[in-house]
């Protein structure tokens, strides 16, 4: 999977070079010559290192401090996978619901269902959270600021 993710970047840089090659010089200078071609070469190096287990063979990576958050979750693989899939399902479902029903209905419903089903909160707590969400999305934006959200596909 580690190498597969490197292949994602490889594909992106390859498409970028392919697409941008015919552009005028000034248009392709940054994206092709400064970003995509060096990026492509670097990904090849990284894929080689992944394939030969370069970092493992050297007793760990180069010294340094992680600039990004370190992914060091200590959960069983199955539990982690299940919770991750569930999380993205909720998130994508919420996004889909916004498109179908509109944000004023979808967000409070998402919060209510997430708290009740996933979080196993009490009904009253889930309803209160949902009500606060509605107040924020409709009360603040539509009522006070008169900034109308677009309706969902179902209501157009």
């Amino acid at each position: 999977m580690k190498a597969n993710f490197g292949l994602f970047f490889l594909a992106i840089f390859l498409v970028a070079v392919w697409t941008g090659w015919e552009w005028p010089y000034i248009a392709k200078l940054m994206p092709v010559y400064i970003a995509a071609i060096p990026g492509f070469a670097l990904v090849l190096v990284q894929l080689y290192r992944d394939a030969t287990d370069w970092e493992g063979g050297r007793g760990g990576q180069g010294g340094g401090i992680e600039m990004d958050e370190v992914y060091d979750l200590k959960l069983e693989k199955k539990v982690e996978l299940r919770r991750t899939v569930a999380f993205f399902a909720w998130f994508a479902g919420g996004a889909l619901a916004i498109w179908v029903f509109g944000i004023v209905i979808a967000l409070p419903a998402l919060v209510f269902l997430y708290a009740l089903v996933e979080g196993k909160e009490r009904w009253i707590t889930s309803l209160a959270m949902s009500a606060c969400t509605f107040l924020l999305v409709w009360g603040l934006f539509e009522y006070m600021l008169e900034s109308r959200w677009p309706p969902g596909v179902l209501f157009r």
Binding site: F9, P38, G39, L42, V43, V45, Q46, R49, E55, G60, Q61, G62, G63, G64, I65, E66, M67, D68
Partner: peptide, 11 residues
């Protein structure tokens, strides 16, 4: 300098 994998940082 981003983390212990400079190549990935550049990518």
């Amino acid at each position: 300098l981003a983390g212990r994998r400079p190549i990935k940082g550049l990518i």
